[in-house]
Amino acid sequence: MNMPKYERVASAIREQIQAGALKPGDQIPTTQGLIEQYGVSYGSVRTALLLLKAEGLIEGRQGEGVFVRERDAG
């Protein structure tokens, strides 16, 4: 199974959120941290984060970082 690098990163973060390892309000690692953790390029990390944002799982906060979004009630 050879998925694109960005999808591998997105899947790993998504699984951590679903498993409760990353909870709403938790900050996810920096872009540089993710690059080092997964051994991928800046572009792959950026695409993965955009994908997770589009899914409503994470949100960027200007000057603060990227956080797991609070789940909408209901």
Rank of each mutant, 00 (worst) to 15 (best):
residue 14 R to S: 11
residue 38 Y to K: 01
residue 48 A to P: 01
residue 70 E to F: 07
residue 50 L to S: 09
residue 2 N to D: 12
residue 5 K to W: 06
residue 20 G to E: 06
residue 46 R to C: 08
residue 5 K to D: 14
residue 51 L to T: 15
residue 72 D to F: 07
residue 28 I to R: 03
residue 54 A to F: 12
residue 53 K to Y: 07
residue 27 Q to K: 15
residue 50 L to G: 14
residue 25 G to A: 09
residue 37 Q to F: 09
residue 54 A to V: 05
residue 25 G to D: 01
residue 42 Y to Q: 13
residue 21 A to V: 07
residue 27 Q to M: 10
residue 49 L to D: 08
residue 53 K to P: 00
residue 39 G to P: 04
residue 73 A to W: 14
residue 26 D to S: 10
residue 2 N to A: 10
residue 56 G to M: 11
residue 51 L to P: 00
residue 67 F to Y: 15
residue 73 A to C: 03
residue 38 Y to F: 15
residue 32 Q to P: 02
residue 34 L to T: 09
residue 34 L to W: 02
residue 13 I to K: 00
residue 63 G to V: 03
residue 65 G to F: 09
residue 2 N to I: 12
residue 15 E to T: 09
residue 62 Q to E: 14
residue 5 K to R: 15
residue 61 R to G: 02
residue 44 S to E: 14
residue 38 Y to L: 06
residue 62 Q to G: 05
residue 37 Q to R: 14
residue 19 A to S: 12
residue 57 L to Q: 11
residue 51 L to V: 12
residue 45 V to Y: 04
residue 39 G to Y: 08
residue 38 Y to S: 08
residue 42 Y to E: 05
residue 12 A to V: 08
residue 49 L to I: 14
residue 49 L to M: 10
residue 1 M to F: 06
residue 64 E to K: 15
residue 2 N to C: 02
residue 30 T to F: 06
